[in-house]
């Protein structure tokens, strides 16, 4: 990917678009009330998107399965997060698990 103007343009569109999405809430809220149920629906939709992103990035690599080390690392991190372990521990444990498994020759 060496097309610099195309890359720069894409980054700027993403920046402007992302800011607009972030600004929409504070802007709309000052003009009219958003129904409670609509807000809940939007929040749940965001969680659904994020969960799918987690699953695909943890279990898949491109169009195929990701092997064992990465899902195992995410699983360890996930269990620690579920047990309400500190954020930094979740990050380090997930990375370390995957790294150690790979060191042992696990794909």
């Amino acid at each position: 990917m060496n097309n610099t103007p195309l890359m720069l343009g894409a980054i700027l569109i993403l920046a402007v678009g992302t800011f607009s999405l972030r600004f929409a809430g504070p802007l709309m809220r000052s003009r009219f009330e958003i129904p409670e149920r609509t807000q809940q629906f939007l929040a749940a939709a965001a969680i659904v998107l994020l969960t799918a992103l987690i699953a695909t990035s943890a279990l898949m690599d491109g169009h195929g399965p990701a092997g064992i080390a990465r899902p195992a690392g995410v699983l360890v991190g996930g269990i620690l997060a579920w047990r309400k372990a500190p954020f930094i521990l979740v990050v380090v444990a997930a990375a370390t698990t995957a790294a150690v498994l790979r060191l042992l020759g696990v794909p």
Partner: peptide, 22 residues
Amino acid sequence: TDVFGLDAAFPAVLLALVLPAL
């Protein structure tokens, strides 16, 4: 970077963030 397991850290961070909502 996979040697350091960084590819596993990213989904784990997001998972920690969405768990309460789940």
